[in-house]
Computed example of a mutant assay.
Amino acid sequence: MAETKDHQAVFAPWEDPNEAPLIRFRGVTKKFGTFTAIHDVSLDIYRKEFFALLGPSGCGKTTLMRLLAGFETPTEGQIELDGHDIAPVPPNQRAVNMMFQSYALFPHLSVWENIAFGLKREGMAKDKIGDRVTEMLRLTRLEQFGRRKPHQISGGQRQRVALARSLAKAPKLLLLDEPLGALDKKLREETQFELMDIQEKTGTTFVIVTHDQEEAMTVASRVAVMDAGVLKQVATPSQIYENPNSVYVAGFIGDVTILQGRARKDGERYLVDWAEGQPPLVTHSGVEIGPGETCHYAIRPEKVEIHKDRPDDDNVLHGKVIDIGYLGNISTYHVELANGQIIRAQSFNTERSTRQAFTWEDEVWVNWTDRCGILLAG
């Protein structure tokens, strides 16, 4: 366990060299004919993690999950669960359960019977089944719905029934395949926090597959960003967002403006020459950029301030407001610079007003500090 400055324990087993992973992918490749769905993936996932596999459709995240579940076998490499090679273990004998997007509830069975189904198949004693189902109903706040059929409850409640059924057998690992995809935005956001609460209470390791960046960033202890069967970065949500390791990850996670240029050292800082007639951008970075090498500079809109008058600071650019996105709590301004580049800036709407601070065609200045941008090699 890592510790914060006030000595409170922080969950970060991946930082502890003495902590053994629950799941270990070792050089795993999966091919379907001539198509490589997963290429040489090595990855450790630890006990009690809520781990997210994130990426666009076709990136390989679902194939990784199916390999864990036993529905596919690796073409190359090895997958271990709790230190044991699981390749020869059939899906129904793995200490793994899977929750599908469709929930796959039995429509003719009650909520109670759906949760009990797997326990009965295992031959658990009736009194123990009753105790376990009651425990699962309490955990998922479904006590009053035990006698109802799936069609008599809401989508969010059906999602919790599927979760309760998946957890009833106390698996070491629960796989969640786009579990919230069928829910509307508000319910999905509420259910994300319910999932986090249940995962923390049970201590079960969760691995979720999602293409929803916000969902992954909300629920996960760590996120693996994938593209074309390759792991691009594995890190905590804050590290992925604030310190992406590539242009791909920076562009995939959240909203960002990415500029191409060439960086040169200026003492402890870099100066990035990115457009003729525009001042160089000033940044601090641990990334080493060689003289004359092409680089990319990423800046997120919430880091960018917008002003009517020119501020006295680094990274000050002049432009014109060409578009405005009003989202209630924030407004996003699209500012076009003289060279045609668009910079997005956000401001919080802290006062109750229907008037925007800036409007279309306004001449404005945007700026950010030298520690807000992200310098990326290549």
Rank of each mutant, 00 (worst) to 15 (best):
I299R: 04
D177Y: 01
L43K: 10
T140I: 05
T257Q: 11
V230Q: 14
I240M: 04
V366D: 01
N114A: 05
Y248R: 08
G118M: 05
F11N: 01
K149F: 14
R158A: 02
A216N: 05
T62R: 01
D273L: 03
M99Y: 02
G77D: 09
P21A: 06
T257W: 10
L180Q: 06
R121G: 06
G83T: 11
A263H: 07
C372V: 00
Q192G: 13
E194W: 06
P280S: 11
P150H: 10
T257M: 15
L137K: 05
V364S: 00
V96A: 01
N97G: 03
V304H: 06
G290H: 11
Q213C: 12
E276D: 14
A220N: 10
V230L: 11
T294K: 07
R147C: 09
D227H: 14
A95F: 00
Y241H: 11
V223N: 11
Y241L: 12
L327K: 08
P17M: 03
F193I: 14
I129P: 03
Q278E: 15
L281H: 11
M65F: 04
P13M: 09
T332M: 09
I86F: 10
K61A: 02
F32Y: 15
E178I: 14
H108C: 10
E178R: 11
P90Y: 05
T34F: 00
V230D: 11
I324S: 10
M124K: 14
G286T: 14
T354S: 04
L119C: 06
E242H: 14
E214A: 15
S331K: 12
H108S: 11
G155F: 04
R371N: 09
A275N: 09
R310F: 01
E19T: 14
G261S: 04
R371P: 01
L137Q: 01
F51C: 07
Q199P: 03
A216W: 00
T62S: 13
S353V: 11
I208V: 15
L81R: 04
N92T: 10
A69I: 13
S110R: 06
L376V: 08
A104F: 07
Y241F: 15
L167G: 02
